[in-house]
């Protein structure tokens, strides 16, 4: 009786294949156009807002209220949903799920591809906006806040794509209601908001007043990263426990 060795690809090889797949799937012309328009919108509004009596504060308010609370979550959602969310809704996730690869390779590739595609647009929006506002202190902290926001939001929106039907609308509701409004209602609620952790970096670094309650810089860096890692964990769990169409 003959024997056959039944090894799948190495996790690294699978991860590399999946990263390329997700990058190709998310970087469509239409999606690049939408993300670019949103990024330019933030930069322009920040530049215009920065011409008031307290340009640093006004620019920081725009970067927080428009950039971190609305545009960055929305562009992260657009990209994240194009990874696993669309595959699940189109019933093509099965063509990855049925392969002999660890679930973490799928989860990590989708999440890291989301971060990689979203970052240039988020950093561009916040960085260019800060530069155009003429407030030098805002530039580096705005870029760091954008990076942390993208990391945190990616940790939320990738698993949401697997967990719920109409994941884009669900994610949009989360961004517009939770991150934009409810997180402003109190410091307790704000601790569960990605926006507030990222905004505290701007508040501390540029010495402006934003609706955060004096978080430590270390916490502001670690929390979004922890959300990303937890999001990958949840995605792995969902891939192992949800029924796949």
């Amino acid at each position: 009786m003959s024997e056959t060795t039944l090894t799948g690809p190495s996790p690294i090889a699978a991860f590399t294949v999946l990263i390329r797949l997700f990058l190709t799937a998310t970087l469509t012309r239409a999606r690049i156009a939408i993300l670019s328009v949103l990024a330019v919108f933030v930069a322009v509004i920040t530049a215009v807002g920065g011409s008031g009596s307290d340009p640093a504060q006004t620019s920081a308010d725009v970067l927080d209220g428009l950039g971190l609370a609305i545009v960055i979550p929305v562009i992260t959602l657009v990209v994240a949903n194009a990874t696993l969310g669309e595959l699940r809704e189109e019933q093509t996730l099965v063509y990855l799920w049925l392969r002999p690869i660890p679930a973490w390779t799928i989860a990590a590739a989708a999440t890291i591809a989301t971060v990689g595609v979203t970052l240039p647009f988020a950093v561009g929006a916040m960085g260019v906006g800060a530069v155009l506002s003429g407030e030098g202190d805002l530039v580096s902290v705005s870029i760091l806040a954008a990076v942390l926001a993208v990391i945190g939001y990616s940790g939320i929106f990738v698993p949401v794509g697997l967990a719920v039907r109409r994941s884009f609308l669900t994610g949009l509701g989360y961004a517009l209601i939770w991150e934009s409004l409810i997180s402003l209602l109190g410091s307790g609620l704000a601790r569960f908001s990605i926006r507030s952790w990222a905004a505290s970096i701007i508040a501390t670094g540029a010495d402006v007043d934003l609706p955060t309650d004096g978080r430590s810089s270390v916490g502001s860096i670690l929390v979004p990263i922890a959300v990303l890692v937890a999001g990958i964990g949840v995605t792995v769990w969902l891939l192992g426990h949800r029924e796949i169409d």
Binding site: G8, P9, L18, L96, I101
Partner: peptide, 11 residues
Amino acid sequence: RFVELAARLHG
């Protein structure tokens, strides 16, 4: 390309 993707993910 689709079938090649399957082949790669099967090692």
